[in-house]
């Protein structure tokens, strides 16, 4: 019995050690380290064939089947950063009525209370997401080519979609998204992080430039 007791206590102690010995990656992670910036691009697309772009006038906020358009200080700065970054790559900002080659949709997603899929484009068709009618194609759908992502999580994030209007009437009344950026992790809705996040997504997308550049 003494022997059995010792073995059992050893097993109990062992089980305790399993849980306590591990170094937990999240314990010493800063907010900056927690964030990831994912860009997806259509491998068929030639980004130098586009010259003009237009950007939405506010940001779609999608949360738990409730959604609205907002224009907070954060949103103003985000839209401004995207404009100047695209202009720095040689694209010309025009009004959406001037038949831009590219449309820029911007969405904030608060996914803290539901767990929807995280493939780029799942938010298209969500109430509140930019309707194709906004870009002059009422009743159309957005289409995201077979992008690949590994992540699925409940969180807040930001999605930026670059939609091809130049080659719009291609097939099936679909507007094709040729580029998408997702900002994910702690603090992505914090204005003070916007500059570094915008720089990161453009730095990792060197192909995103107009022919004149």
């Amino acid at each position: 019995m003494k022997r059995t007791g010792m073995i059992l206590s050893a097993i109990a102690v062992g089980a305790l050690l399993f849980s306590s010995c591990r170094k937990e990656p999240l314990n010493d992670m800063t907010e900056e380290e927690s964030r990831i910036y994912v860009t997806n691009y259509d491998e068929q697309a030639d980004f130098t064939t586009y010259n003009t772009f237009s950007i939405v006038d506010s940001v779609a906020v999608i949360s738990n089947r409730d959604s609205k358009k907002e224009l907070t200080d954060y949103d103003i700065k985000l839209l401004g950063n995207l404009k100047s970054s695209l202009q720095a790559r040689g694209y010309t900002l025009v009004d959406k009525s001037a038949k831009p080659d590219l449309a820029v949709n911007v969405t904030r997603i608060d996914n803290a209370y539901n767990s929807i899929g995280y493939n780029p484009g799942w938010w298209t068709g969500w109430p509140g997401y930019w309707d194709t009618g906004y870009w002059g194609y009422p009743g159309w759908n957005y289409w995201f080519p077979g992008y690949y992502t590994v992540f699925r999580y409940n969180e807040r994030s930001v999605a930026i979609d670059l939609v091809d209007l130049k080659n719009a009437p291609k097939e099936n009344n679909q507007l094709t998204a040729i580029w998408n950026a997702m900002l994910r992790g702690t603090g992505v809705w914090n204005s003070s992080n916007l500059d570094s996040m915008t720089t990161a997504i453009f730095d990792q997308s060197p192909y995103l430039k107009a022919s004149g550049n």
């Binding site: 992670m29 927690s34 910036y37 994912v38 997806n40 491998e43 080519p145 992008y147 690949y148 990792q204």
Partner: peptide, 13 residues
């Protein structure tokens, strides 16, 4: 990745 770039601090365990 394929049609994708991810900027991240990776922690391997």
């Amino acid at each position: 990745g394929k049609g994708e770039d991810v900027s991240a601090v990776q922690t391997h365990t």
